[in-house]
């Protein structure tokens, strides 16, 4: 299967993992290993001076694993740019998942702030992967602004509802000039397979794995689903049957006889 290139880096796995919501660093690490992923998100939190918790980073720092710092928590472009600079310093990478959701209930991305932040961050040298609405025009604008990929949502974060936005994802994929990573809402391996069959370049999955009964086993299932979906896409899926029977009324082409 073909390789995926984002921000100058080649990925053989088209499954990316979010690291939130796991019960423990150990469970997170097991899921990462089982998934075969080559890129995981990392977040930032303020340290506690009184109690030094287990360092999460040691569990994700291994050869070949690309860190994707996430600006989640910021509410506008200005905060996102500041958070990006902190994350570049902390993690030593220009890769950035830009996530701006001022609404704490549904966590839907703010399109205006996301576009503004992308423009600014690209100028500052970041490899920007914006999490965004499944809005084809927005995705074109993000790509024009220099985003390294676009990450439209399938459904709101954490809902596991699958590809509610599939009609729009199809348009985005059709028109894309940068890789398309479906991010948010993927709740089952079948959803991921569907996204890949549609032609998405990758999937980012978090909740569905982290809160599964057995996260590592679920991660392994997702690995297979993404591979199967991509392989099917590259093998060129046959067209589905549709009704081609001519209607019984006067022929439209009679005038040509």
């Amino acid at each position: 299967m073909s390789d995926l290139i984002i921000g100058g880096r080649t990925f053989r796995s088209r499954l990316f993992l979010g690291t939130g919501k796991f019960r423990s660093n150990r469970e997170m690490a097991a899921a990462i290993a089982a998934s075969g992923t080559e890129m995981v998100t990392v977040a930032m939190k303020r340290i506690e001076t009184t109690n030094a918790s287990d360092d999460m980073l040691v569990h994700v720092q291994r050869d070949g694993l690309q860190l994707l710092p996430n600006t989640s928590g910021v509410r506008d472009a200005e905060e996102a740019v500041f958070a990006a600079q902190l994350s570049r310093e902390a993690f030593g990478t220009n890769f950035l998942k830009l996530e701006i959701h001022p609404d704490p209930r549904y966590l839907l991305p703010d399109s205006t702030e996301t576009l503004r932040a992308t423009e600014e961050l690209v100028k500052l040298g970041f490899v920007v992967l914006p999490y965004c609405a499944a809005d084809p025009t927005l995705c074109k604008r993000l790509a024009e602004a220099g985003a390294a990929a676009v990450m439209p949502l399938g459904a709101p974060i954490g809902t596991n509802l699958g590809l509610r936005t599939r009609d729009f994802l199809q348009i985005i994929i059709e028109q894309a000039t940068v890789p398309v990573v479906v991010d948010a809402g993927i709740g089952a391996p079948s959803h991921a397979a569907e996204a890949m069959e549609m032609g998405a370049d990758a999937c980012l999955v978090n909740t569905a794995i982290a809160v599964a009964g057995q996260p590592a086993a679920m991660a392994a299932a997702f690995k297979q689903a993404v591979e199967a979906g991509r392989q099917a896409f590259e093998a060129v899926l046959p067209v589905q049957a549709a009704n081609l029977r001519a209607e019984a009324s006067s022929p439209l082409t009679a005038f040509l006889d």
């Binding site: 001519a246 022929p251 439209l252 082409t253 040509l256």
Partner: peptide, 10 residues
């Protein structure tokens, strides 16, 4: 298939 193409085109 001209007739069916005409229908789809329309």
């Amino acid at each position: 298939y001209l007739e069916i193409m005409a229908r789809l085109s329309r």
